[in-house]
């Protein structure tokens, strides 16, 4: 069944709205990345190629904090694992063989998934996915460039408190996901392990230890059958 004009317009309106909101995230990512010491080109490349916000924020702030690029890259990839689970729910929308899946894969992120799983019809879901993909990809990258160029013009980002922006960004990304007792308990344990190990191991490694703790905790919770 073809989509009627009203449905089509409402999907596109929502997609643009989400794009604008994401542009604001992009702005802060660009500023934080340049403040962390990445070049304008590296910052722009991350938004174009990695295109998944939490991973990008994590990578630049770990490198900015003196962590090795390897630790930064590993943390970014670990944070990207959730996108694999989004893909599973999107296979009816952009699945199937060939180039459409290969291209669509790059846009499998929080925002496009949320939009594409909402409609009942596959046609509406496809439109929601691609409209959100175009809008978010465009405005995320524009926002990144504007934020990066803006931050480059600032002589000492610390006087503006920009080094406090990254933790706040993590907090804002985290808050909507913090649902349930086990998530709190595991997150607190992971964070404390990272903090306690910080003086003992090179920068960037504490976050990977936290990831290890999380995996072990997840397996134990599953073995005990906790909901």
């Amino acid at each position: 069944m073809p989509l009627d004009d009203r449905t089509r317009r409402s999907i596109i309106r929502d997609a643009v709205g989400i794009g604008v909101a994401t542009g604001a995230y992009g702005l802060s990512f660009g500023a934080i990345s340049v403040t962390a010491g990445l070049s304008l080109l590296q910052t722009a490349a991350l938004s174009l190629l990695m295109f998944t916000g939490a991973s990008q924020f994590a990578m630049v702030s770990l490198i900015g904090g003196g962590g090795s690029p390897v630790a930064g890259a590993a943390t970014a990839v670990l944070l990207g694992t959730r996108n694999a689970f989004y893909g599973l729910r999107l296979s009816r929308v952009i699945g199937g063989p060939g180039q459409r899946r290969a291209l669509g894969a790059q846009f499998v992120i929080d925002e496009t998934t949320a939009m594409a799983v909402a409609p009942d019809s596959v046609d509406a879901a496809r439109l929601a996915f691609w409209a959100t993909a175009v809008s978010v990809f465009t405005l995320w990258n524009v926002g990144t460039l504007v934020g990066a160029v803006g931050a480059q013009a600032i002589p000492d980002p610390k006087t503006l408190g920009l080094d406090a922006a990254a933790p706040a960004a993590f907090l804002a990304l985290l808050a909507p996901r913090m649902t349930g007792r086990h998530l709190w308990a595991v997150s607190l344990t992971a964070a404390l392990v990272a903090l306690a190990s910080a003086p003992l191991v090179p920068a960037g490694i504490p976050v990977l230890l936290a990831a290890l703790v999380t995996v072990v905790a997840g397996l134990r919770l599953e073995a005990r059958g906790k909901g």
Partner: peptide, 17 residues
């Protein structure tokens, strides 16, 4: 693990940063 990992890592990053 996929549910726990992003949340725990974001919390860890907020604290360590």
């Amino acid at each position: 693990i996929a549910t726990l990992l992003p949340v725990a890592l974001l919390a860890t990053l907020a604290v360590t940063q």
